[in-house]
Design a protein around this nucleic acid. Sequence first.
DNA 1: CAGCAGCTGGCAACCGTTTGCCATCGTTTG
DNA 2: CAAACGATGGCAAACGGTTGCCAGCTGCTG
Lengths: 339, 339
Amino acid sequence: MAKPPAHPGRPVTINDIAALTGVAASTVSRALANPGRGGPATRARIRAVARELNYVPNTQARALTSGRTGTIAVCVSDITNPFYFDILRGTQQQLKAAGYAQLLIDTEDSGDHEIEMLHRMRRSLDGAILAASRLPDRTLTQLAGEVPLVTINRNIPAVPSVVIDTPAGIRQVAEHLVSLGHRDVVYACGPTTSWSNAARWQAMRTAAARHGLKWRRVGPFPPGQRSGTAAADSVVNTGATACVVFNDLLAIGMLTRLRERGVRVPGDISIVGCDDIFGAEFCNPPLTTITAPIERTGRVAVSMLLAVLNERSSPAVRRAVLLPTHLTVRESTGPVTAV
Amino acid sequence: MAKPPAHPGRPVTINDIAALTGVAASTVSRALANPGRGGPATRARIRAVARELNYVPNTQARALTSGRTGTIAVCVSDITNPFYFDILRGTQQQLKAAGYAQLLIDTEDSGDHEIEMLHRMRRSLDGAILAASRLPDRTLTQLAGEVPLVTINRNIPAVPSVVIDTPAGIRQVAEHLVSLGHRDVVYACGPTTSWSNAARWQAMRTAAARHGLKWRRVGPFPPGQRSGTAAADSVVNTGATACVVFNDLLAIGMLTRLRERGVRVPGDISIVGCDDIFGAEFCNPPLTTITAPIERTGRVAVSMLLAVLNERSSPAVRRAVLLPTHLTVRESTGPVTAV
DNA sequence: CAGCAGCTGGCAACCGTTTGCCATCGTTTG
DNA sequence: CAAACGATGGCAAACGGTTGCCAGCTGCTG
């Protein structure tokens, strides 16, 4: 029944539909996109034809006038870090459900990259989710003026954010370690530019103080598995009986190095990671860590961003969401052994 | 010196530059994009102003006429599979270098999802890279007519592809196992729809035959860590002394289960994975596996796609690239022990 | 010196969709 | 019954570039 468009190869446009139904292109546009406008009968007819022709709106053309591109960027600092896999999985799900496309940006741990990419793309984006941004507060605030933003694990006043409550987990860790008899703990730092690192170290310090633990820190270390070597060596040097590590990736790297050096975990030293990424469960020994709802974090971030986009006019409902964590005890922590 | 555009907030357009330099918009367009056209002096002037105004071309508008969107989609079947992390890392690098944006599509192991997403987005894409497509050959060939395509680990005549030579690795594995005294091996299958799975099983069969090994297979299993339980149980049931597994994810899952059941690896059974993903190195025991140049695979795929795009007119230089692998022996394989 | 080629830059149409504004029509209200 | 009104659908102007075509100029050649 449906006639194909004039040139068979040419994609179907709104005009083809208009011609076929005998209405104006504007009517078609409204029938397909604008819920309030237009008569039900016309709309039904148009929709039927559109479906039959397998019409797919041209995103570019739409974006040109409406400004909405249907694309959200997700920036991660290092795509090979499993932490982001689950973030991406979460954002992906939620974005797909809402009909958005997900643009992946790997900033390679460089703030310059991050700002430059976002600036270049801001016209093609409806918004962006910044996971573990390395940008300073001021830049971020300014950027939020150009593109609707939601940050993950980064809390600054002007920008809605979802942060994982790892500090709460660290308090649990402190209790866990104390109950095992540890009195001397060390924190292995992540990158100085990392907001989470600061938050975690801070939590560590206060928790240690409350329990009367001796505490100190080593680092900073790049948050990768390979830095585990240096981190492990530093930690061993301190003589502490337990170590809380900035993230699981680093912790897993440390485990490897400790094994190499013949340092027993948890016999000689207990290790606690953060995040509970892929791998934490099956490394050797399985890692005691602070389990974060990573995938959910991604989903929530998207929801918040979409809320911001939809309520562009109304008094911005910018919030900061805090997601709970819990301690998962595996085999990398144990009672302190008498020397 | 440079005057900001009329409305301070409004982004800089080609017209602003035209007005400021006193030329027509078309001249600006050519000066910025078209290398052959225009006078050197004018061009220099225009470029200077453009840079000064921090001009960023509007991708949407450009795409509308030129058809080029500057976006490449990368489809993966399951974003939480670490195999794809490295693929993405590779594509990301190469795409960024070439000035393309990377759209991430997770098809969730469903061919329907895959075809539907690609079809809907084909207008907004310059091309797509399909990693481990679940689509049948015919659909794929047809899709290649709509969007320039490069496949990864999937070789069909009409579509350029880069495939990882895991079969060669499997031949090495066979020799490795034979040298350790194994005579009875089993292959744990991945999804039936997976092209690589078929290739691997085929290689396994011929290699086993050549060495006079007894071989069989179990499965199929979904290629996830959690399927490891079922896979491990099946494998143990066969009584084989060695098992080659479709991929590392599944193999790692099996390792966990075997440990649970008290089956010693490699004492009771040797396990070999495929791909050498994140985690293979530090699982317990570290996994003997066929190391694939995963990141490079992503880079090569992008290069091929870009080549196709640039030589759209010339006789299509469609090729199939085969990337070498090698066996990495760790601790999950060992000599067969007398019962 | 006329004619012509080659280069430069301007004009304007176009890509496909959205949207402000207006004409029309049927219905309700004063 | 006239006026006012709300709903409906059409017209046309954007949106920001790209590109085919043409005019004007320069510098050759015949």
